[in-house]
Design a protein around this nucleic acid. Structure first.
Lengths: 340, 340
DNA sequence: TCCGCTTCTCAAACCGGTTTAGTGTGTGCC
DNA sequence: GGCACACACTAAACCGGTTTGAGAAGCGGA
């Protein structure tokens, strides 16, 4: 039973002015005497009045909200610890203005129609595109729909959108280098789904660093960013005739699962196997042994993405935003390569 | 550069009718000839018109969105795998009508003002209250604000709100019973923050079951639902003069951290220690050994909560909704108590 | 005294829908 | 022929804000 909220007319009546003046006073527009303005603001405060967002949205033609669509297969939902922090960052930027974030968690096959509805509804002013794939249809889609957007992650030629990126390569390069320094020569990779740009970038960073160091490319197996995939890939790698002495995973979830498979197979970490993850999830410090990983500022990323979208909406020509890269965080899960 | 969307007037012009008729046709209201209706719908489809949500919200006095406020300390953000699945469930119910969910991720000290703004703004029609604490101020707050709400979890006397609950006790009772059957007599608990109702319920389920079975109450230590807390509590428990032979944790995160501490201290699981978590996160099947846990249908919970809020908004007198309880999922992390 | 220029304020239109209170028209019935 | 009534449709008001264009009041200068 929502209590009836006061309207701008109530405030105007109470302050003895017109609705126009109330609106002007509230929005700090010139042409209102200081004394009148104070009287209006006082009246508003007494009535507990705040402008109605829907009404404001209608007359301004701005929804006052951003959209974030996450398309996941049901079984993969709830495996990603990146988003809560990212969303918290977005909230920091949005909250200042009282704007909000509409989150739509859907399945990949419905993704397209969610964006279409978001655009047709005019319920959001713009969207943040995450988890981009190669030849992702979304940049073209939002362009066709006239829906302002910002790409969260490295943009590709042809996206035509402002991007806010945080490079994950340096952390991989650093991890591989460190492993090489520790004497490892068979360094495997358990990759994420290669259709994702970031998964692909991680793989190529691993690959190129090995090449640069003159090391052979160890085996690569798909891990799908999941615990199950990580476990399966690890089991396969460790039962090879010549198993790798180090494995670099696409993310922490796969790496953590990999740690327990190693344990199960009696392969000591880091004595016989070194392990590296990515994401620096809260668990990494408390696995056994603590998992080496890479830290990216998800919160800052969210905030930067929201601010970039703000500026795109303001009509500015926004250059791509580049955030400080992810940092490699070595922990006890890596060690010197075992003597042959 | 949002392309200008067509309005209801454009559709009316194209179909050669009044705006009223377009509105009636779209909302399936009687008084429009079938032939006219088809003509109108065809015109709308050709123009790609969908009613503007802000305009609709304004005239209907309904925002067409629900709110979900998550208040976490920054360091605890991104540790909870419950919400993605819960949100996906909410989306199922909301998506049917094209409604959305506004997610606000904030800090505990700002929680109150977020609800106040949500109410004053009329940006959401109602809110879902999760993670309730004892004497939680939110039921009274939303009542004062006239903001319709549904409690996600067990309601307490005095809330005065419809609740949608999923009992987590049976899983704990079952876990403790099973441990007792396996011969355990010193069963400890690493509890979540007791100000949370669910954390408290879990603890009391453990306590009461032990009492019922005539077993001594093992030690209880705070684990804070975090990896760090779980690790610290486990270390403390395992270095007692008479350490427990089984530990029941408040959630999987703490339990997983507990597993690695046991390993680090050379305490074999499940030979010398049995471990139980809660939440059945994706990782449980791939820890070493696989973690016994409890499965709750977070997705179904979200869907049920959204539907209950729907009915509250429709003005129905809604009885508390009770979902099937969480189920204990035994895995290899539990085994017979060690011989003394 | 009249004029021009600020400064402050407001009536009315507008945003894009929904809803109320009608206005024709055609049909059935006495 | 006249009346009641259902049916198909519409003009105008409304939701609660913002914005435009104009008016009133005060003041200095010619």
């Amino acid at each position: 039973m929502a209590r009836k909220q006061p309207t701008i007319a109530d405030v105007a009546r109470r302050a003895g002015v017109s609705r126009t003046s109330v609106s002007f006073a509230l929005n700090d527009r010139p042409g209102i005497a200081e004394e009148t303005k104070q009287r209006i603001l006082a009246a508003a405060a007494e009535l507990g009045w705040t402008p109605s967002r829907p009404a404001r949205a209608l007359s301004l033609g701005k929804a006052g909200a951003f959209g974030l669509v996450l398309a996941r297969e049901p079984e993969d939902i709830g495996t990603d610890l990146f988003f809560p922090a990212f969303i918290a960052g977005v909230e920091v930027a949005l909250g200042e203005r009282g704007d909000g974030l509409m989150v739509h968690l859907t399945t990949p096959d419905r993704e397209r129609s969610v964006y279409e509805r978001l655009a047709a509804d005019r319920r959001v002013d713009g969207v943040l595109l995450t988890d981009l794939r190669h030849d992702d249809p979304r940049p073209a889609l939002v362009h066709r729909l006239g829906l302002p957007a910002v790409v969260v992650g490295q943009s590709e030629w042809g996206d035509g959108l402002t991007s806010v990126s945080l490079d994950d390569r340096p952390a991989y390069v650093e991890a591989v280098r460190r492993l090489a320094e520790l004497g490892h020569r068979r360094i495997a990779h358990v990759e994420g789904p290669q259709e994702f740009r970031h998964a692909h970038r991680r793989r190529s960073a691993w690959e190129e660093t090995l090449r640069e160091l003159g090391l052979p490319e160890g085996p690569v197996l798909p891990g799908g960013f999941t615990a199950e995939g990580g476990a399966r890939a690890t089991r396969e790698l460790l039962t090879l005739a010549e198993p790798p002495t180090a494995i670099v995973y696409g993310n922490d979830l796969a790496a953590t699962a990999g740690l327990s498979v190693a344990l199960e197979l009696g392969v000591a970490v880091p004595d016989r196997l070194s392990v590296v993850g990515y994401d620096d999830t809260p668990l990494t410090r408390y696995t056994h042994p603590p998992l080496s990983s890479a830290r990216a500022d998800a919160r800052g990323w969210g905030e930067a993405a929201a601010r970039a979208l703000d500026r795109v909406l303001a009509g500015e020509e926004v250059a791509h935003v580049v955030l400080p890269p992810a940092e490699f965080v070595p922990r006890a899960s890596i060690g010197p390569a075992p003597r042959p």
